[in-house]
Design a protein around this nucleic acid. Structure first.
Length: 361
DNA sequence: TCTGGGGTCCTAGGACCC
DNA sequence: TCTGGGGTCCTAGGACCC
């Protein structure tokens, strides 16, 4: 830990991002695979259509394999790769061990998915803290991580990407313009390909240009909340509060893509019923009730449609949810082949609801 | 490269009411 | 009476992220 003289202590946001998390966990369980091309995804069968890679090791990437790629394509590109099934409970367990290590420090830890956490800390030397966090995670779990340091979550998140792999990087308001202004807008956390293309159409190709754009103009094109938010991101601003309050899920769902299209209406109904029952069991296990049910149908080749309905009252009863889901399914025109079915619910807020509200500062 | 599964939040339009 | 405007709820879809 750091004490004594030096820069005055102040608040920092750190972003801890595990390096190649899923692959790293798998290599710990299968040390003999170290150095070999490994692809993780689906049930691990690379001949099954319509499954994609969750991750690929650097050795597999050398063959052009990457996450999101269909396993059948990965197999074609790298026939000698080892294909492993995805094992979410194992990743969950590894993640929990990492978060426990972080919580051992005098900091606030906000878990942000399996392989990420924001850390709020008051210190005069954030690099020293970051190095301590990195080393403690490595010692306790054998997992490597990168740490970004910023004034807010947005900066810290981008900084950890600059730090990869196994590094530490600081990106604050002092460095923002120099580092970010010439980059494309989709370098920002929250701007993807679609929005970047739309911004480019307005002549806003870079972060610097977006940071100087007219908020009213942005609001006209992107909506009253999203428009000004885009400029806010480009200015390097972001949420500064790191909260240890556990996240309360807003909803939950299950969906399945079939290796071959479904055409029989009875098969489709049976699948929706099974998904609805599973979602009901999940909700009950979470101690939550549903207030709205949504059915998702993806038709061949790739046309996705949803229908939803508000339930008469909150429930986690499997029979009630199944009836509701099947009634919603009835509103689809099911004459085309179906490649995916999904059922999801919106949860009722728990009685002691403490939803985190986020506002622009 | 024929394209997973699990989420979150925002927007827009129509219904309905006063 | 042929027609205003605001507020809220509901629904479908889009965009983004891990």
């Amino acid at each position: 830990m750091t004490t004594g003289s030096g820069p005055a202590a102040r608040d920092w946001v750190l972003h801890v991002d595990l390096d190649q998390f899923i692959a790293a966990v798998e290599l710990l369980r299968h040390p003999e695979l170290r150095g070999r091309p490994v692809v993780v995804g689906g049930s691990g069968d690379p001949t099954r259509p319509r499954t994609v890679a969750a991750t690929a090791t650097y050795e597999a990437r050398a063959y052009g394999v990457h996450s999101g790629m269909p396993l059948r394509t990965a197999l074609r590109r790298c026939p000698h790769a080892v294909f492993l099934p995805s094992d979410p409970p194992a990743y969950e367990a590894a993640s929990a061990r990492v978060m426990a290590v972080l919580r051992g420090f005098p900091v606030r830890v906000e878990v942000w998915g399996w392989d990420e956490a924001f850390v709020g800390a008051t210190t005069g030397d954030p690099e020293a803290l970051a190095a301590d966090l990195r080393q403690a995670v490595l010692d306790a779990t054998e997992l490597s991580c990168s740490v970004g340091i910023g004034d807010n979550k947005h900066q810290a998140k981008l900084a950890s990407a600059f730090a990869k792999p196994a590094g530490i990087h600081r990106l604050t308001g002092a460095e923002w313009a120099e580092v970010m202004h010439d980059r494309p807008t989709d370098a920002l956390w929250g701007i993807g390909a679609r929005t970047a293309r739309k911004l480019a159409g307005l002549g806003l190709h870079t972060v610097g240009r977006l940071a100087a754009a007219d908020p009213a103009e942005l609001a006209r094109h992107f909506g009253p909340t999203n428009g000004p938010w885009l400029r806010y991101l480009a200015e390097g601003r972001g949420e500064t509060e790191v909260t240890t309050t556990p996240w309360v899920p807003r909803g939950h769902g299950r969906e399945t893509t079939f290796p071959e299209d479904l055409t029989d209406a009875r098969d489709i109904s049976a699948c929706v019923a099974a998904l609805a029952e599973q979602v009901a069991r999940d909700a009950a296990a979470d101690g939550r009730t549903a207030v709205r049910v949504t059915v998702k149908v993806r038709f061949a080749p790739f046309l996705t449609r949803t229908r939803q309905s508000k339930l008469p009252g909150p429930t986690a009863d499997p029979a009630t949810l199944t009836r509701a889901a099947l009634a919603v399914l009835d509103r689809f025109d099911l004459t085309r082949p179906v490649r995916l079915l999904g059922v999801s619910v919106e949860y009722a807020p728990p009685a002691d609801a403490a939803y985190t509200l986020t506002t622009l500062e």
